[in-house]
Computed example of a mutant assay.
Amino acid sequence: MLIGEVSARSGISVRMLRHYDKVGLVSPTGRTHGGYRQYADADVRRLFQVEGLRSLGLSLQQVAHVLDDLAFDPGPMVERMIERTRARLTQEEELLRGLLQVRAGEPAAWTDVLRTIALVRGLRAGDPSARQRLVLGLTGALDDDVAPLTEAALAEPDPNVSGALHWALARTGDTAVPALAEALGSPDAARRRQAVVALEKIGSPRALGTLAEATGHADAFVRGRAALARGARGDADAVPALVALVVEGREDVDAADALGVLAARHGCTGDVVREVAAALAHAPVEARRRLTAALAEVPGREADDVLVTLVEDPDRGVALTARALLRTRPGRGTAR
C-alpha cells in the first residue's frame, strides 16, 4: 500500500507517517514496479504496534526501544505508566471537584467564577494557618460559598481549621445541611465524622433533625451521636440507645446527661429507670458503675428505689456511688 492508502485506512495522517519514516520508526520497505515505496504487511503491523504503544503514553523513543529490544522487560515501564496515570487522574478529579463547586455556587458572572476559584484554591493551601486565616477572614453573606466550604469542612484534617469551617457553615443557616446529610452515607469514616460534627455545630432544628434520623447507621460513631441528638429533642425512643452508650463507655457522659434531661424535662423517668435497671442486671462492673452514676440527674421515687437496692451491691464502687447519690436526693438526707 502506498502512503495515501495507509493513511486513509489507518486514520494516521500522512504527515505523521512521514515523521515515523524520518525517525526510522516505521518505514515502507516495499517498492512498486514504478519504483515508488510502499508499505508491506509487516510494516503495517509494526505501524499498529507503534500506535498501540503510543496510546499508552510512551514517547516515540520509548516505543522504538520496546520494539527493537527483544529482551525488553515491560514490567517496570508499566508500573511507571500506572503511577503517571494515577497522578493524572488525581489532578483531573481535583479539577472536577473544583468545577462542581464553582457550578454549585450558580455563578452569574465571570467575577463570581473567579472568586469561587480563588476560595477553592485558598482552602487547599498546604499551610493550615493559611487556611484558617482565609476562613476567619470571610465577610458578608456566605451563601454562594457553601459548596466549597462544605467540601473543605468534610475533608479538613486540622481541628483548628475544622472549627473555623464549622463556624462559617453555621453562618449560612441550613444551606449546607443537604450536603452534610449526604456525607453521612460516605464510605470514608473521617468524612462521616466531619459531617456529624458540622451538623452539631450548625445546631439548628433541621441540622439536628437530620442527624437524629441516623440512629440506625452502621457507623457506631454516627449512631451514637444520632442518639444524643434524639435525646436532646426529647424523643423517648432514644433511651435504649443512650443507655447502651453508657454501658459501652462511649459518649457515656453526654449520654447520661441526655438521660437526665429526658427524665427531668420530658417525662421519661419511667423509661429511663427501667432501661438502666435492666442493664444493671447483666452489665460488667465498670459499666454498672457508670449506670449507677447516670441516675444522678434522674428525679423521682423510681430512681430512688433503684439506688437503695444498689447501696447493698457487692461491688464497692457501685455501692459507694449509690450511697453518695442518695445523700443528695431531695427528701433523703442519709442512706443506710
Rank of each mutant, 00 (worst) to 15 (best):
G11C: 15
S13K: 07
V14D: 05
M16R: 11
H19V: 10
K22D: 14
V26Y: 02
V26E: 02
T32I: 04
H33L: 12
D43T: 06
R46Q: 11
Q49P: 07
L53C: 06
L53G: 06
V63N: 05
A64C: 09
V66F: 02
L70I: 03
F72H: 15
R80A: 15
M81F: 06
I82R: 15
R84S: 12
T85A: 15
R86G: 05
L89Q: 15
L89W: 04
T90F: 04
E94P: 07
A104F: 05
A108L: 10
L114G: 03
T116F: 03
L119K: 08
R121Y: 08
G122H: 03
G122L: 04
Q132W: 04
T139F: 01
A141K: 14
D144V: 10
A147F: 09
P148L: 05
L149E: 07
L149C: 09
L154N: 05
A155S: 15
A155C: 07
V161P: 00
V161S: 04
W167A: 12
L169F: 12
R171M: 12
R171W: 11
A176V: 04
A176N: 03
P178A: 05
A179T: 08
L180K: 02
E182R: 10
L184V: 00
G185Q: 01
D188Q: 03
R191S: 01
R191N: 00
Q194C: 12
V196H: 01
L199R: 12
S204L: 13
L208E: 07
G209H: 07
A212F: 05
A218D: 15
V222P: 03
R223H: 02
G234I: 05
A238R: 00
A241I: 02
V243D: 09
V243S: 10
A244P: 02
V246C: 08
V247W: 01
G249Y: 06
D252E: 12
R265W: 07
H266V: 05
D271I: 07
R274F: 03
R274I: 09
E275V: 00
V276D: 07
H282C: 09
P284T: 00
E286N: 10
A287Y: 06
T292P: 04
A296P: 00
E302H: 05
A303V: 06
D304K: 06
V308F: 09
P314G: 13
V318F: 04
V318W: 05
A319Q: 10
L320E: 14
T321H: 04
A324N: 10
L326Q: 00
R327P: 00
T328S: 08
R329L: 10
R332K: 07
